[in-house]
Amino acid sequence: MLKTPHWEMMVVWYFFLGGIAGGAYFTAAIADNFGGSRDRRVAQIGYLLSLPLVAICGVLLILDLGVPLRFLNMLRSFKFWDPMSIGAWALGVFGLFTLVSSVLSFSSSESTIALRRKIGLVGILFGFFLASYTGVLLSATALPFWSDARLMGALFLASGASTGMAAISLIMFATGAGSGDGWGRVKKADRFSMIFELVVLAVFLALLGSAARPILSGQFAALFWGGLVVVGLLIPLVLEFVGHRMRAVGAVSAVLVLVGGFILRYVVVMSIQS
C-alpha cells in the first residue's frame, strides 16, 4: 500500500554525478594537502572536474521537480533531520567550494596555495556529504529495501570515492599526464576505495538479508551481480593488480568503475519502483 515517488533517470544521474563530484573534490583536496608537488595535477583535475559536475547536478535536481520554477522553495526551510532539505543547501554550498577551489587551482603563489588547501579541507566535508546524503535520503523513506538499508549512505559514499578517483585518472589518461603527475597515487587510492566499497557492499547485503530481494532477484539481479559486482568492481580490481604498470589497462579499469557506479544508483533507485 506504499507509494513510490517515480524518480527516474534524472535522479539516477544526479546521484551518480553527485558521487563523482564529491569523490573527485575529496581526492583533489587530499592530494593538495597531503601529496607532494607532483600531485598538483591530481588536485587541479579533481577541483576542475567537480565544478561542472555540481552545476549539472543542480540542473538535474531542478528539472526533476514537478514545478521547476519553484526550486528556490527548497531554501524556504532548513530541516537538519531531512536529507532532502539539507541536501539542497549542501549542494549550493559545495558548488561555491568547487568554484573557489577551481579558480585558486590556477595560482602558484604560495599564499594562495595555502589558502586553497585550507578551503579544500573544509570543502571535503561537503563533498562527502553530497556523495552520501543521497543514500541516506533513500533510507529515510517509508519504502521497504531503501528504509531497511542501514548502509545506503556509506555505500554511496564509497562508490562516490571510487568513481571520483576513476574519473580523475581517466582525465589524466586522456590528457596525457606525464608519469610524474600522481597517476600511480590516484590509482592506489582508487584500489583502496574499491576494496572498501566491496567490503561495505558485502556488509550492506548481509545486514539486509531478504530485504535485498528487489536487487537480488528478478530483472535487476543480473545487472546487480554482473554489472556492479563483476564488471564494476571485481574485473577492475583484477585489472589493477595484474596490469597496473600499463596505463591503458588502468584507463579501462577506470571506465568499468564508472559504469559500475552508475549501475549501483540505477539498480537501487529503479528496482523498487518498477
Partner: peptide, 11 residues
C-alpha cells in the same frame, strides 16, 4: 509552495 520533489510520496 510545493515544488513537486515527491519526497513526501515515498515518506
Amino acid at each position: 509552495v510545493c515544488n513537486g520533489c515527491r519526497y513526501c510520496v515515498s515518506s
